[in-house]
Simulated scan of single mutants.
Amino acid sequence: MKPVVVLDARITRRYSVGMRHYVRELARRIPRVAPDLKIVAVVNQPLETEAETVRVGGSNFGITEEAVVPLTALALKASLMHHFSIYAPYEPAVPFLLTIHDLIHLEFPEQFKPTILAYYRLFTRRHAARARRIVTDDEATVETLERLLGARRERVAVIPLAVDDAMLELAQRPSAGEAERLRSLGIGERPYLFYAGNHRKHKNLATLFEAWQGLPCDLVITGADDVPGGLEQYTRGDARALAVGNVDRSLLAALYRRAAAYVHPALVEGFGLPMVEAMAFGTPVVASERSVPGPLREAALTFSALDARELRRQAERALRDVPLREALRARGLAAARQLTWERTAEATAALYRTVLQEVTRA
């Protein structure tokens, strides 16, 4: 009889865009790469998966999470359960793995509500101590897990993330009307630096705005113009700072493709999927030292996160140095090709097998 592995594949409003990608890609791929395991997905919305599914409610912290999810694992006689985020029941009921993408909330507690910090203290620290493995995206996060949660290094598995197939397809075959869509946003032939992501304080956009001053290009960011004082304050001469709102996948692809460079100034990241996506489009990446993941480090120009002068210098190199741009393009494309969701799923399934052997021997 195949061992039963349950995937906690719920997606709630607390999940970031990157977390949602992670859940969807693993739920879709793990059943295909693990025919030796019986994979069951606990879901709260339709997901593309060949796994058997059990539908539950959708919120965190309530009876679904604390009772329905663990009782479902018991009813299925699960040998192992993988919680795809930190939002797991206080008593998981069966041996489990826990994915922790980052510990930004604990590294910058002043930026978040006390309730989420209390959750980390009461739940996540407990889960980190009891999980058979903590799964994280990058080697740099391991030290943070040890320091802030007391995690044991030998219980942490590093499995990198990747670019989704649809974005890779757009990198190879542009959608029709890209130039027209960009022009409708006010983006023409003038070069621009590009940032994609939310505007939370730890994303450190203030350093990007400061660094951009004096560069011979525009600046384009996704999301609303919710910058204190508005982006217009940074406009000087012909150079403009533009917020293009929420964008769909095809428009995001167009923005990556046309960008002179992609800039990621965050104080820290778990993995930072936009950097991988930019590299898949052959766009040079300039990123803060603690935001760029290990597999991409040799393909990016880096700077100290709060050093606007160094960011400006690296961005100017990416804009003006043609041989360097070509080298970054080649290294970035090569790095992005190595990171596939199929490999992420295969590494995750291999981890399940290792842990199942440990559970059986225990």
Score class of each variant (00 low, 15 high):
6 V>Q: 02
6 V>C: 01
7 L>R: 00
9 A>L: 08
10 R>L: 00
18 G>H: 08
18 G>Y: 07
19 M>S: 13
21 H>G: 08
22 Y>K: 09
23 V>L: 11
25 E>P: 01
27 A>K: 03
27 A>Q: 05
28 R>Y: 02
28 R>V: 02
34 A>W: 05
39 I>Q: 01
43 V>Y: 03
43 V>G: 06
51 A>D: 02
52 E>C: 12
58 G>D: 04
59 S>T: 13
79 S>C: 09
80 L>I: 07
88 A>C: 11
92 P>K: 09
99 T>G: 03
100 I>H: 10
101 H>L: 14
102 D>M: 05
104 I>T: 11
105 H>V: 11
108 F>W: 06
113 K>P: 09
114 P>A: 05
114 P>R: 10
117 L>T: 01
121 R>K: 10
124 T>G: 00
130 R>V: 04
141 T>W: 14
151 A>P: 01
155 R>S: 12
158 V>N: 04
161 L>N: 01
171 A>D: 07
172 Q>G: 11
174 P>M: 15
177 G>Q: 04
181 R>L: 12
181 R>V: 08
183 R>L: 09
183 R>S: 11
185 L>S: 10
186 G>S: 03
190 R>N: 05
195 Y>M: 13
196 A>Q: 10
199 H>C: 10
204 N>S: 02
204 N>I: 01
213 Q>N: 09
224 A>D: 12
225 D>M: 01
227 V>C: 11
231 L>V: 06
231 L>M: 04
231 L>T: 00
234 Y>K: 12
234 Y>V: 09
234 Y>C: 11
235 T>D: 15
237 G>I: 14
242 L>S: 09
256 Y>W: 02
256 Y>R: 00
265 P>Y: 01
265 P>V: 06
266 A>C: 08
271 F>H: 02
272 G>A: 03
280 A>M: 03
287 A>I: 02
291 S>W: 01
293 P>Q: 11
297 R>C: 03
300 A>R: 00
304 S>G: 13
310 E>C: 09
311 L>R: 05
312 R>P: 01
314 Q>S: 09
324 L>N: 04
325 R>H: 10
331 R>A: 13
334 A>W: 01
347 A>Q: 15
347 A>T: 09
354 T>L: 15
355 V>P: 00
357 Q>C: 03
360 T>C: 14
